[in-house]
Design a protein around this nucleic acid. Structure first.
Lengths: 202, 202
DNA sequence: AAGCTGTGACTGACCGGTCAGTCAGCGGGT
DNA sequence: ACCCGCTGACTGACCGGTCAGTCACAGCTT
């Protein structure tokens, strides 16, 4: 056998626990679920959760950081491209909606349990959360500088409005009971940009 | 004594408990605080909380319903007036921001613990929450009908974007450590309307 | 190739603390 | 002398986190 044989699929219990936690947190909420629920869902012994993670909190934090870092990076990469600010915003909205389409449970957990939890994880992860807001604000600022956007509102305010609108659409989907169709996903991206950039006025 | 004498200030312990609960929920969060904290804050015996409320949950539900009903009513009344849709939206945003200015703790609790709690109170109070969204959507629909607004996005989508932006601004204030100045309060109302109605495009 | 040993991933019974909710009774007003 | 608003010690369930122990396996020795 070589040093890294990879003959068998290799269970990777840590990943198993993380994935199970997403499902359990999404289903019952972080506070309502038990560590035993995570272990059961992962088909793993209770104690193994504590072998890989210091605490229940750390499981959620890991989940959040993994995903949020990707988003922050995407926002930065988009901004570096040679694109109209409006197109950049469309790409960012598209990425976020696509993240939800790809893994609704994970996005639900991140939004409900971290991004909006002003008394627990939200406070803890504020700096990382702000990184994303700042990135969006930079895109808007670029748009203002190039003359594409009007200079009526501060970039960071516009970023808030943009991100708030995106998150509210996501929240609507999270609260909805039926699955969301492909049409809604596609439409949402354009509708957000149309609303925030074009405005409602006729 | 008459039926409602009001000779002495009347302690009204129920109100005392409700007001104390707002402070405690805002400070530590609903899940992190103990019923004993509420009783202590109110200067009242532990058991009295259970004299007036069936459960800890019911305390929060009462708080939410009291305030949310007022908001839904305001939205409806605004819509009945002879005003441009844009002005109606400005009034609604103004009311929400003013609610925060008047009692930040209460708004924080309502937003963080109910409006955005997809796994607990949010689910329970979904019908009431939707009443507000629907009211805003009706204002937008009126604007489209009168030709004031373009017909590019469904009214309920526009309502989501509007309310999402408002809530995100509020969230920013909630997460902020320093107090918010009067200038910010006044400016926010106009900035929201400028962003959502006017749009960013130059 | 058979035995021996060290390693660490993995297990799950258990513990100690915490807390929502109960209830027996007190005391001031009428 | 009877309410009844009010009290707060108490209880029982629950749950996060611990830790003593198991076992599969890799590598060494003979």
């Amino acid at each position: 056998m070589a040093t890294t044989p990879a003959k068998a699929p290799a269970p990777d219990k840590r990943r198993l626990i993380l994935d199970a936690a997403v499902r359990v947190f999404a289903r019952r909420g972080f506070n309502q679920c038990r560590v035993a629920d995570i272990a059961d869902e992962a088909g793993v012994a209770y104690g193994l959760v504590y072998h890989y993670f210091r605490s229940k909190d750390q499981v959620l934090s890991t989940l959040f950081e993994e995903r949020w870092n990707v988003m922050v990076e995407v926002i930065e990469q988009v901004d570096e491209q040679e694109l109209a600010a409006r197109e950049k915003l469309r790409t960012v909205a598209g990425f976020i909606f696509e993240s939800y389409r790809h893994d609704p449970d994970l996005m639900k957990v991140i939004i409900v349990e971290v991004t909006r939890a002003a008394n627990s994880f939200g406070r803890t992860h504020l700096p990382e959360i702000r990184l994303a807001y700042d990135g969006i604000a930079r895109i808007v600022a670029g748009g203002v500088q190039s003359g594409e956007f009007r200079d009526v509102v501060t970039p960071s305010f516009a970023a808030m409005a943009f991100y708030g609108a995106v998150e509210q659409v996501l929240t609507g989907w999270i609260f909805a009971d039926e699955a969301i169709g492909a049409v809604e996903f596609e439409g949402a991206k354009d509708a957000i940009v149309e609303t925030i950039c074009g405005g409602l006025n006729g």
